[in-house]
Amino acid sequence: MKTCIACGMPMTEPADFAMGDITKAYCRHCARPDGTMQSYGEKLDSLSGFLVRTQGLDTGAAVDAARDMMARLPAWKA
């Protein structure tokens, strides 16, 4: 099973992939409207915003956690 290289989400259905394209390595949540993958800055903003919205984390704690998580995902590994 594939997981998104940019956020780690499991991708089991075509609808999970960016633009429904199963050859893509990233998911629909990590794609821009034109289908290209979001940049590091865009993903950091959206992931930390997601943590604040859905878990109620402090913004600074959310950014730190998001940065740490992203550092271990294939798309963002140094």
Binding site: G8, M9, T54, Q55, A65, D68, M69
Partner: peptide, 20 residues
């Protein structure tokens, strides 16, 4: 360690995603 704590937050985010 911090890296383990962040991983826990990531796990919770996959759950909060489905709930949301």
């Amino acid at each position: 360690p911090e890296s383990a704590q962040s991983t826990f937050t990531l796990i919770q985010s996959s759950i909060s995603f489905h709930i949301s």
